[in-house]
Amino acid sequence: MKVVVIGGTGLIGSKVVAGLSEHGHEAVAAAPTTGVNTLTGEGLADVLQGSSVVVDVSNSPSFDDEAVMEFFRTSTANLLKAEGGAGVTHHVVLSVVGTDRLQESGYFRAKQVQEELVKASGIPYTIVHATQFFEFAKGLADGVTEGDTVRLPAAGIQPIVSDDVAAAVVRSAVGAPVGGVVEVAGPEAFQLEEFIRMGLAAQNDPREIVTDPQATYWGAELQENTLLPGADAHIAETTFADWLAQQK
């Protein structure tokens, strides 16, 4: 089976390509660096020729509200149109647990539009919702740092390693379309402050971490369960502590 992975050279995409190849499928990494640009449509028709499944794990190069909306709306529309012409029978897209609960954020409004386009396309689909990645603890802290202080809202989070996210995407790609959302999360829930504290401590990062009732997450206010998966989520095995130990 030929599977085209949009964003196939990135953190998740490269792991998805490797996982599909290990299962004996023809996995093609598609990205601007390989001559495929979903924003302009360049290379889409050629790369999709003969493909059965398309996996979209691409992300916007800019998180500015207008730019990220333009990216997900335009690239998804171009991709779905090209898939219709190529006879693709399964579209798999990676999104985020809690997207529909984070609509105060420009980024998550754009992700919601992406999901709605996929649902309305007529192409059989699976939407994979993943929780926050272990790898992004420092980047998340950087985005809410003022001076030497990291200000975080009080909320739960159940983070997951990127390897396990990629494995979930591969499972969806080789399986039948579900016509809905499947969730994947790590094995442990933390308070957001605890997750970030552990991540920064492992890197000997001295920043002070405080819980601030006024703090937001990518511009959105959080409730305790906003970032947490539902009861039917697939729970991965890799713990944050084990992953941190491997980074040393």
Rank of each mutant, 00 (worst) to 15 (best):
F136C: 06
A202T: 08
A154S: 15
K138F: 11
G175A: 13
V184E: 00
E188S: 14
S162N: 13
A202R: 13
P177W: 04
E193V: 15
T149V: 15
A189D: 04
P177S: 06
G143Y: 05
A155L: 08
R171F: 02
A154I: 06
V184G: 01
V181I: 14
D142E: 14
A154N: 15
V174I: 15
G139F: 09
A167N: 04
E188K: 14
V210I: 15
S172N: 03
V182E: 08
G156W: 09
V210G: 12
A155C: 13
L192F: 13
P177I: 05
A155R: 04
G180Y: 11
S172V: 04
E193M: 13
V182L: 07
T211I: 05
P206C: 08
E194Y: 03
E183Y: 06
V161C: 13
A173F: 01
A189V: 12
V169Q: 01
A155D: 08
V182W: 00
T211F: 07
V170W: 03
D205H: 12
L192W: 01
V174Q: 00
I209A: 08
P206F: 11
P177H: 04
T145C: 05
V174P: 03
I209H: 08
A137W: 03
G143C: 02
V144C: 07
I196A: 09
A201Y: 02
G175I: 05
A167F: 02
P153M: 11
I160R: 00
A173M: 08
Q203L: 15
R207F: 11
Q158S: 02
T149P: 03
G143R: 10
F195Q: 07
R207T: 12
Q191Y: 13
E194P: 02
N204G: 11
D205P: 07
P206V: 02
G175N: 06
D142L: 13
A176Y: 02
V165N: 01
A185H: 09
D163I: 06
V161P: 01
T149E: 08
D164Y: 02
A173G: 08
Q191G: 14
V178R: 08
Q191M: 13
D163N: 14
Q203A: 15
T149G: 03
V165S: 00
Q191F: 14
